[in-house]
Nucleic acid binder design. Structure first.
Lengths: 110, 110
DNA sequence: ACCAAATACATAAGTTACCAATGTATCTAT
DNA sequence: ATAGATACATTGGTAACTTATGTATTTGGT
């Protein structure tokens, strides 16, 4: 069992949450922030992140803005109004999921 | 995003945990107990459960005993000594995972 | 001045833990 | 009788990842 299998499905709510808290962020920044906030526990691979961001943009959940820092391109993402709704829903699901997991983690209590 | 993607990887630690708490259980019983303890949130499909149980047995983590209730076969599983070790490790990983998720769920605190 | 590491984007192929569907058979309750 | 619950199992498909690879710019150390 790969320990990493655990956070399958968590990436999307995490990204949406961060974008709700920070208005606009770019891909690399998102990976760094997740790594930092989780003390190195969650490391988002590029192969997971970029396809996800593209999909979310396509779905109208994110809106992208390309900017240049010197000659280097940087793509900022922010939540659309549809994205805010999606974020709340996704985060609620994640919270429920965690709560449910804890039901199983704790010994039965009367 | 399928909400069910969330608990990918959680099934194994959950099953191992239940088997540690209850000494011996059979497949159908496991599905019922998870459903009950999570108030219907987690529903384990047979296509996920039985292959997992078989794999864990093959890996020497579980030991199976076939019994008959009338004419109906029932396969009890229990943790081997290797299984107890695996259970503790898996559960620790799950706990860490939940903790890490909560790091991201809560707003940054100084 | 040089080069490794960091920054920043991206895609393609492979993995795997699950779901949905299907199958078989027995037992129970109405 | 027969629908639903109990109890096992397998097959085929999927989606969200990982690993590997690619390109290019910028920064920092010696």
């Amino acid at each position: 069992m790969n320990k990493r299998a655990l956070y399958k499905g968590c990436l999307e709510p995490i990204i949406l949450k961060l974008l709700q808290e920070h208005k606009r962020m770019y891909g690399y920044e998102l990976t760094m922030m997740v790594k930092e906030q989780t003390k190195g526990e969650f490391v988002i691979t590029e192969g997971a992140l970029y396809p996800l961001l593209h999909r979310l943009e396509e779905e109208g959940i994110l809106q992208a803005e390309l900017e240049y820092i010197g000659n280097r391109p940087r793509k900022y993402y922010k939540l659309t109004s549809k994205g805010h709704t999606a974020q709340q829903k996704a985060f609620q699901e994640l919270s429920n999921f965690i709560e449910t997991l804890q039901l199983l983690s704790k010994p039965a209590q009367i």
